[in-house]
Each structure stands twice: as C-alpha cells, then as structure tokens.
Amino acid sequence: MICICCPLGCALTAVRDKEGEITVTGNTCPRGEAYAKNECLSPKRTVTTTVRVKGEAQAAMVSVKTAGEIPKDKIMDCIRELAGVEVALPVRIGDVVLKNVAGTGIDVVATKNIEKK
C-alpha cells in the first residue's frame, strides 16, 4: 500500500502473522507504521468540505474539516449530515460547526475566518 501521511508516498508492506501481530516494512518514519496498521484494521481519513453561510452574506460557503480522522466508511454519512448545516457569521477557525459527526465522536470545525460585514 502507498502511505498517504506526506508527499513522499512510501510503498508499505504490512504482514499479519498467526497471532494477529502486524509487521510493517517500507516505511521511512513512525507515521508510516501507524498508518499501515490502521489501514489494515480500521482505515481512517480527515474529511474536508464546505457548509453554507446563513442568509445573504459576503461569502456563500465556509470551509470545514473533521477535527480528527474518522472511519473511512463514515465519510459519506459525515457529508450527508453536513448537507443541512448552515453557519451564521462571523465564524472563526476552530469554531465547532457540528458536534460528534455521524456518531464518530469527532467534531467538524471551521477552517476559515469570515467576518460579519
């Protein structure tokens, strides 16, 4: 598998032995090892998307992200839950837009500062 932790894109190999222990080779840093193990057991991703700004404002959308990684199979649920969310201005980076998205325990936060005009 290819590591997605940084632009290097190391080619990783993960082997699981009889006891269920996973050994990772090909990584050039500790993040690669953690990624490969996670990818075998429960792949996770940070989701970045946008939500609408409430009412008529100088910006139509606010960019957001999950404050941490969420399980890969919850990505579309996360997107669906955010579809109905609207944010009132002003908004600051880090403001929580939606708590505990898709039951993952992870919040969705704003990634842009937009003042109210």
Partner: peptide, 10 residues
Amino acid sequence: EELTGPEYAA
C-alpha cells in the same frame, strides 16, 4: 502540522 489552504493563508 497539516493545515487546510484557508488555515495556512490565515
């Protein structure tokens, strides 16, 4: 740390 584009700009 890994930032989004708007966060880096900010």
